[in-house]
């Protein structure tokens, strides 16, 4: 397509240069006028010559299609998800400790390899639980409920996905 365009432009330029040279070489006179008008006709013909072939032609735009897709940096997203998981885990354990329950081990597991950060489940280990004096509840079921509330307040996770180990 582009080679035909360039040949079209070259032929326009060529015909014009030719007419200028002929005009320069011919002596002044009556015949000069006719030759000039003939060259004008030729130039018009050259300019409009590719136009009829444009009709009914299928243009191929395949080389303009999108072939590119950007790859995200998976390592970075994974590492950031690990940071997020750690941050949530730290917040939950410090909250639990501030409520008066010590030695509770919280571990949060999340989909670290996905671009959509999501917490899968939370494990709370209560085997080494030490209940300090300022704690609200002493009963283990009440404690579990309170810890469950704390966990749910920090992590968007199903109630059924919070596991307790005693």
């Amino acid at each position: 397509m582009f080679s035909s365009v360039s040949s079209w432009i070259l032929s326009i330029a060529g015909v014009i240069s030719l007419s200028v040279i002929v005009e320069l070489m011919l002596p002044e006179g009556q015949i000069n006028k006719y030759i000039r008008s003939i060259f004008s006709f030729i130039i018009v013909l050259v300019i409009i010559s590719p136009l009829p072939s444009l009709i009914g032609k299928n243009f191929n735009f395949n080389d303009l299609s999108i072939s590119q897709e950007y790859e995200l940096q998976e390592d970075y997203i994974y590492q950031l998800n690990v940071y997020k998981t750690e941050a949530i885990q730290n917040e939950i354990s410090s909250d639990i400790e501030n409520s008066g329950y010590k030695n509770v081990i919280v571990s949060v597991s999340s989909e670290n390899f996905s671009t959509n950060f999501k917490i899968k489940s939370v494990y709370v280990e209560l085997s080494n639980l030490v209940i300090s004096e300022n704690a609200k509840h002493k009963n283990i079921i009440d404690i579990e409920n309170e810890i469950l509330n704390i966990v749910l307040s920090h992590a968007k996770v199903d109630r059924a996905e919070v596991y307790f180990e005693k």
């Binding site: 582009f2 365009v5 360039s6 432009i9 326009i12 330029a13 014009i16 240069s17 007419s19 200028v20 005009e23 000039r36 060259f39 004008s40 130039i43 080389d63 303009l64």
Partner: peptide
């Protein structure tokens, strides 16, 4: 792609034609 394979030749065409258009007094493009 549009810029490099369509507009760049268009610029060249316009430049070349302005060259030949000023060659003679009679034929203007």
């Amino acid at each position: 792609n549009i810029f490099t394979i369509f507009l760049m030749p268009l610029f060249l065409i316009s430049t070349v034609l302005s060259l030949v258009s000023n060659l003679s007094n009679n034929i203007k493009l």
